[in-house]
Nucleic acid binder design. Structure first.
Lengths: 238, 238
DNA sequence: GAGTGGTCTAGACCACTGA
DNA sequence: CAGTGGTCTAGACCACTCC
């Protein structure tokens, strides 16, 4: 089976909420009604509804029902693992990627630390800036282990590396740790970003892990601070 | 029943991982073994394991088993909904809260926008700064609807408002939207923070919703940028 | 009381891993 | 092949909401 039944139901309901077929504050059909409609069991329906709840589409209230939340109020979620390309496409703004560095090298000290490897390890090093409205506002520095990615071309680097890794190489990205802080610009920042006089950059450090929990990529995204925005939807665990 | 069986199992396993009783990279007992150990059904065990997975404690690998992740490598997660007090207590650093404003007022235009209410609505307005190592590094501006919180004392405001709301008032906080950006300091920032010459602050806007999905609180946390740090663990949805 | 979501059970079949 | 996690089912009892 390509996709599980509950993710199919989740996606169908999520898109109905996204495109306004299901209006905010209205009640969803009850779980037992959904069981009939989708001809499945209640636990399967509940898995789909729990996904909707976790991702901010609905609110479940015991004894009352499940209600559609106003997703527009939450804007687009940049939370989780989303590549620059996906964000750019969602916002619809035209953008351009400029590749500065793109090479295989031995891991230097700082990268060894971040990736947790020895200096004998070959790593890809890719430096790219992202331009919108004629200004280079993000500098992406990617490092990943060559043993997972034997080949890489300028075309791939110009587009979305994620897409290539996941779709073409079949690498399964499983989870990531993200860390946001603010720092002074490096020489590279000054060279490859249009800083417009801003004396600080927002640094997003991203540690990306594969399905077998091995760390395989470290990315530093350096944003001009006036163009930085991060949105998260979070449910509270009681 | 006070707490569900699967959350109990989750908490037991999570604390064993936290305190090192279960070492990183070791294999957990299989699901069927856990079924025997906890004398429960497999779906219940799986609910507990899914919680562990979502929160970055374990990695499940089909056909192989569940493996303990190195939680120390992830530091403490500040992700999700965590109050300043909880973070401060986790880090163990001494801190102090200074209350500047603490009053009931009609919602002004900006707050009406954020809370989505009319100007006739009474709101609590609380302004507090957080001091660590002798420096006021965070300015918290809280606004919440008086209809949910009839009374408030200086003692409560000095400590943790969250604790009061959840434990004493029984308000159930359900989810929140967080937005991080960088901005120039306001007059209040200059007055109530030790900015040390920094010409920007990191602004965390927090919209807090109750169980019935009603927006009841808006908080703006304004951080001195050198002291700001945000960490998130995120799983990728495939 | 009827209807709702929350939890739990005991079983089943599948796809994947490793020996 | 046996063992693992992933999905799905049909039923049960509970706590909660609303009338």
């Amino acid at each position: 089976m390509r996709e599980s039944k509950y993710t199919q139901i989740y996606e169908e309901l999520a898109s109905k909420i996204q495109n306004g077929q299901m209006k905010p504050n209205t009640k969803l059909p009850s779980e037992s009604e959904l069981v009939e409609k989708y001809e499945t069991s209640r636990e399967t329906i509940r898995k789909a509804l729990n996904l909707l709840s976790q991702n901010g589409y609905i609110q479940k209230i015991k004894g009352k029902g499940s209600f559609v939340l106003d997703v527009r109020r939450f804007d687009f979620p940049i939370s989780g693992l989303v590549s620059f390309k996906e964000i750019a496409e969602k916002t619809g703004k035209p953008w351009r990627t400029i590749v500065y560095e793109f090479e295989v090298a031995k891991a230097d000290d700082a990268i060894q630390q971040h990736l947790g490897v020895k200096g004998t390890e070959d790593v890809w090093k890719v430096t790219r800036s992202r331009e919108m409205d004629g200004e280079r506002i993000i500098l992406d520095k990617d490092y990943f282990l060559k043993k997972y990615v034997p080949h890489l071309t300028k075309d791939i680097v110009q587009g979305s590396i994620y897409e290539y890794l996941e779709r073409d190489l079949g690498l399964k990205i499983s989870f990531a740790k993200k860390e946001i802080s603010v720092d002074e610009p490096t020489e590279d920042d000054r060279a490859f970003l249009d800083l417009n006089g801003y004396e600080y950059v927002v640094v997003v450090k991203n540690y990306v892990y594969l399905e077998d929990a091995s760390l395989f990529q470290y990315t530093e995204s350096r944003h001009r601070l006036d163009k930085f925005r991060f949105i998260e939807f979070a449910r509270r665990r009681h």
